[in-house]
Structures are given as structure tokens and as C-alpha cells.
């Protein structure tokens, strides 16, 4: 009964001051939406990064005029290198087929008179050491009919490292913004407490306990947090949808497929409930402090 009354009172306050409520909720929502958006971007990038090959390897591209014979002669030379773990031959026809099946370039490729791709070898390595990698690339570059030696696992590995760093930075920023939400809710509730100071004092005189006084403010804080959490998820969804739209226009011209991975329902719910919890904490801290100040001044 007491809880129903307190919740009803809190709802009444939220509804009675729609402008104050909306502005308060929006401020908190933006504070929450920022890390949520950052998380969405990070998740999207990390999905791409996870699809990339980060095992150490180099691709050895042969000259376009290299014959099957030339290619075959190369295999034992590559295999003989102490840093080579395994050697796989990718025939030019095979490479073309793969390109056709994994990208949107099929039509363009079909219109070509001849295969533009060279024979290639993919060599898995036993080392990621930069100096040895450079030495190996220089060695192989000198082999007959070799056009280019490319180690592109390096940037995908770098991307992976950035994603891991981003995760940690986001956690730190998230903690700061959670604290900010506690402060904002606390401040708003403090104003409420001050405007209701007389009512609180008279209530205490006629028998209200500290818990009785606190209860409606706690519900108010929870409600504000919950509304802000839901607004934040909505805001983040809108911005991600817009990002997705812009990216589609951008990426359709390239082979790569980049998708914005939005939050699943569980995460959205967690954010809304987490925000409600932060609202509760903010209200608790602020009402507790104000009550102690009232008590100190009889």
C-alpha cells in the first residue's frame, strides 16, 4: 500500500511537470546514449575485425605472365624458408572464382576478356617479428617471376588491437557517464526535496519515518532513470539507423560489406533497467543528504 502510494505520487509528479520531466529525461538520455552509440560502432567494427584473417601470413603474387610451370618451381623455394609454416597455392582461376562469389563484382568481372588476377601463394608464417618479416619479404621479392609480397594481416591485427583498446576506453567512459547520471538525477531530486521541505518536515512531525520520506523520491528517481534509459535506446537506435543508411550508400560501391550491428533486446533492456538503478542510487544519495541537513537544523 505504502509502495503503491509512493509510486503513484512519483508518477503524479512526473506527469504534473511535463516540461521539466522531458528536459530532465532528455539530458540524462543523451548522457546514456553517447556510450551506447559508441558501443554500437565498436561492436560493428569488431564484427568486421573478427572476420579478418589475423594469423600471420603473406601473399606472394606472381607476375601476370607467370606460367603454371613457373608457379610450381616456386613452391619448394618458399617452403624451404625457416619461417614458413605452410604454403598454399591459389591458382588465378580459383582466385577469380572466389572473388566472384564473395563480392558484388561478378558482372564487372564477367565482362572482362581475360582474368586480371595472377597466380598466388598464401604462406602461413611462424613469426610476427617485424624485422624477420621484412627480411623474408625482401628475400622472396627477389625470386623469379614474383611480382609482390604482401603482408596485410598486419593492419587487421592492428585493427583488432584498436577494437580491444576501444572496449576498455568505452568501459572507462561508461563508468564516468554512469556517475554523471547519478549526479544529474541526484541534483534534480535535491531540488524536489527542497521545494517539498515543509511537507517533509510536517510529515515527520506527524510520524513519517525516514523510509516514508525517502520512498516517493526513490520512485521518482527510478522513473526518471527508466524513462531516460528507454529514450537513450530509442535515440541510439535512430542514430544507428541513420548511420546504416549513410554507410549503405557508401559501401555498395566497394566490395566490403559493413553492417551496423544494433543492440539486441536483452542489451536494450539491461540499459533501461541499469538507468533506472542509477536513478534510484542518485535519489537515495541526494534524499539521504538532504534529510541529514534538515535534522541538523531543528
Amino acid at each position: 500500500m505504502l509502495h503503491a502510494q509512493a509510486a503513484g505520487a512519483a508518477l503524479g509528479r512526473v506527469v504534473a511537470q511535463p516540461l521539466a520531466t522531458i528536459s530532465a529525461v532528455l539530458v540524462i538520455a543523451i548522457a546514456i546514449a553517447l556510450p551506447v552509440l559508441a558501443a554500437v560502432v565498436l561492436k560493428s567494427v569488431s564484427t568486421v575485425a573478427a572476420g579478418l584473417d589475423t594469423d600471420p601470413h603473406v601473399n606472394v603474387y606472381l607476375a601476370l605472365d607467370a606460367s603454371d610451370e613457373d608457379a610450381k618451381k616456386l613452391a619448394p623455394l618458399l617452403r624451404a624458408h625457416p619461417d614458413a609454416a605452410s604454403v598454399r597455392f591459389v591458382a588465378r582461376a580459383e582466385a577469380l572464382q572466389e572473388l566472384k562469389s564473395t563480392t558484388h563484382l561478378a558482372e564487372l568481372l564477367a565482362s572482362l576478356e581475360r582474368n586480371p588476377l595472377p597466380h598466388a601463394y598464401t604462406v602461413r608464417l611462424r613469426t610476427t617479428d617485424a624485422a624477420r618479416l621484412d627480411a623474408l619479404k625482401a628475400d622472396w621479392q627477389k625470386l623469379p617471376k614474383v611480382d609482390q609480397v604482401v603482408a596485410d594481416f598486419e593492419w587487421s591485427e592492428r585493427l583488432g588491437r584498436w577494437v580491444r583498446f576501444g572496449d576498455r576506453a568505452l568501459a572507462a567512459v561508461g563508468i564516468f557517464l554512469a556517475l554523471a547520471v547519478v549526479f544529474i538525477v541526484g541534483h534534480l531530486i535535491r531540488l524536489q526535496v527542497l521545494t517539498r521541505r515543509e511537507e517533509i518536515q510536517v510529515s515527520q512531525l506527524v510520524g513519517a519515518t525516514a523510509a516514508d520520506v525517502r520512498r516517493p523520491f526513490l520512485y521518482h528517481g527510478i522513473l526518471q532513470g527508466l524513462l531516460a534509459g528507454l529514450a537513450a535506446v530509442g535515440l541510439a537506435a535512430l542514430v544507428s539507423a541513420w548511420l546504416q543508411y549513410e554507410l549503405r550508400a557508401l559501401t555498395s560501391t566497394y566490395a566490403a560489406e559493413f553492417k551496423v550491428v544494433f543492440l539486441d533486446f536483452g542489451s536494450a533492456l539491461t540499459i533501461a533497467l541499469g538507468a533506472a538503478l542509477l536513478g534510484w542510487v542518485g535519489a537515495w544519495v541526494s534524499v539521504g543528504r538532504e534529510l541529514r541537513r534538515f535534522a541538523a537544523r531543528p
Binding site: Q204, L205, G207, A208, T209, A211, D212
Partner: peptide
């Protein structure tokens, strides 16, 4: 404090 508050409910002032 809580018990005292509850006691106040039984006294009109």
C-alpha cells in the same frame, strides 16, 4: 528514529 516516528502517530499534536 523509526520507532520514535511510529510512536508519534499515536499522539495528536
Amino acid at each position: 528514529e523509526t520507532a520514535l516516528a511510529v510512536l508519534r502517530r499515536r499522539i495528536g499534536f
